[in-house]
Design a binder for these strands. Structure first.
Lengths: 195, 195, 195, 195
DNA sequence: GATGAATGAGCTTTCATTCAT
DNA sequence: AATGAATGAAAGCTCATTCAT
């Protein structure tokens, strides 16, 4: 694939991501996306063979983006406690600056299972992201900071908690901005996971 | 409304709940629901004026059901730690026995905001449920067991965590049955929230 | 048929007449009519076997009502010119006091031919009314006041003109009330028809 | 819009016009129209966003067509009496050659007010036609041929009369062809309106 | 006579996808 | 690569009519 084509693909994904996150998967039409990219409907199909495939590519794209951010944190030489905080921070920062990414994850990927059932089984399409959380967890255990336990139990805490907060924010029922919760929440998480 | 009509409404809600939770809101059609209730399409509309209204009634129904279960626990004279465990227990038990309820909550209600935006603003349609979590939390604080903090921060932990675990279960990536996680998770939660 | 049944039939016709005239034939539903008569849908069918039949009975009812009014004028011993004026007067008066009658005639009967095609062929369902206009015309000719010409040519003038004015009134584009046009219009008509 | 698309729009309007005029607005379905144009149902909506909008475009199209015919007459240098006759002539000729146009005007436009209420208020959608009648009338008055009177009173006579005749023809109760009435009727009208 | 739940065909409209250009 | 007209299946919803009670 040419670079030019790759760039166009990313433009489409970015536009579709915003529309899907805002209006939902089924309420966003292909013409909606096409006109948002300023491209014809027919031409869209030269880049993505179907709406479902587009949706799957987007979640992979998000997973890579977030995974990359987490890797940067994992590579830093700081305490597990500080890492925990930085992960919460980067998650909330993303939710504030690129809300469509987290929304897509929570509202499109997690909910429309029929769309992702073929090709994204398990956590196939979000493995970059999950992997980094796993590294964070296992290193924390190895260092003796975190309690050894079933990874998924820890993962569920982490992701469920953060996702829940972003959801509450989206519903406008959080009295404060997300970044004001960073300390509370990273404290709660670390308290829960530490030995 | 006659009792008979009320019973039929609940039958419809039960069938629709299962279909929505399994196939998603948009992939479940009114004919799907009608044939599942063994009722004509037209007659469905004598009970619920639209698909959206049906979806909203269902989430209220679930909220009442779960709220009721939680109230029973809140009324028991046990320690906050034990209450925490029992809430996790009842949540996972519901997720096992009536998976459609939790799935509906996670995948239909939380995700298809355009459907619930009018009439379920804030947490209007799930207030019975939220209220009981609030009571649990405030009583725990009053007793001196739980740390005083922003309620939503605690609520997000609780619901996000539990929801996340059920989600992972639904994706078939949890190695064990949900009830095997009760101790770990209630321990984590209590640890996070306690003073 | 009992008197009681006849009274109920007329109640239904009156309500249906108003609804049809206001909202149109197809936009008025049987439940609309039933609830306007404060009667169950099913019971309506004990009085009128179908919506079409109801519509046909209504036009006959209107024709009889208007025919009766015209007969009273025809039986008066006044000049043809004065009769002309009185007919215009009664037509506009009806259009003001019972607008639904004239509207029904213009907007339901004249337009939804597919509804009236079977059972109201020709002018079968409005013959009382047409007959009186015919009597007016033929007596005028016999008296030497009106020019002998094809009856329909005269009838078209009369009914088309009056209907047209009521229509314009209904569209809110007449600057004055209908009764202010009585002199002008009866003058025009008489001028057109007289020898 | 391309020429090609404009041509297709007019093809659709022509087919829809015939069907509406024949079967009525509500009894004509979109599939009826589509198959009459030999086009898919979905594609119809690329040309007209709704059935109502299609109906409104058609009445504008008719108004332009008739307005154009009348302008030709208005521009001719003949007596008011002769103009009157020619207008009646062209109206009846249209009613014979393109009966769907006059029928549409009488049976769809005048009757289904709920369809035209938004976007065709007053005589907005038939102004080309009305304007020419107004010019005919005012020039006749200026020349001293026609009596000065409320325009609508004259307009109602003209249009109501002609419409009434076409209606009677449609009901098969006129013994002769429309063109045989031209002299009688234009005589009546001129007699009514002249000084 | 009276009720209103039940039926199901049929409506308008939408939209992912294809394909001729 | 690019366009956008064309397709047609399928959706949500309506409503005249029937029928068990």
């Amino acid at each position: 694939m040419t670079d030019k084509k790759q760039i166009k693909k990313e433009q489409i994904m970015q536009c579709a991501l915003e529309l899907f996150a805002t209006k939902g998967f089924y309420s966003t039409t292909i013409p909606d996306i096409a006109s948002s990219v300023k491209m014809s409907v027919g031409n869209m199909y030269n880049y993505f063979k179907s709406k479902d495939i587009l949706a799957k590519e987007i979640i992979k794209y998000i997973s890579k983006y977030l995974g990359h951010k987490l890797r940067e944190i994992n590579e830093q030489d700081v305490s597990t406690k500080e890492k925990t905080k930085r992960i919460v921070e980067i998650y909330f920062k993303t939710a504030s600056l690129k809300p469509e990414m987290i929304d897509y994850f929570l509202r499109i990927y997690l909910s429309n299972r029929e769309v992702f059932s073929q090709g994204c089984e398990g956590m196939l399409c979000v493995n970059e992201f999950v992997t980094e959380i796993m590294i964070y967890f296992e290193e924390g255990v190895k260092k003796g900071d975190l309690r050894e336990q079933d990874f998924f139990s820890a993962f569920g805490l982490f992701m469920g908690y953060l996702g829940g907060m972003v959801f509450l924010k989206g519903e406008n029922i959080l009295p404060k901005e997300l970044n004001n919760y960073v300390d509370d929440i990273s404290f709660n998480i670390y308290k829960a996971l530490s030995v």
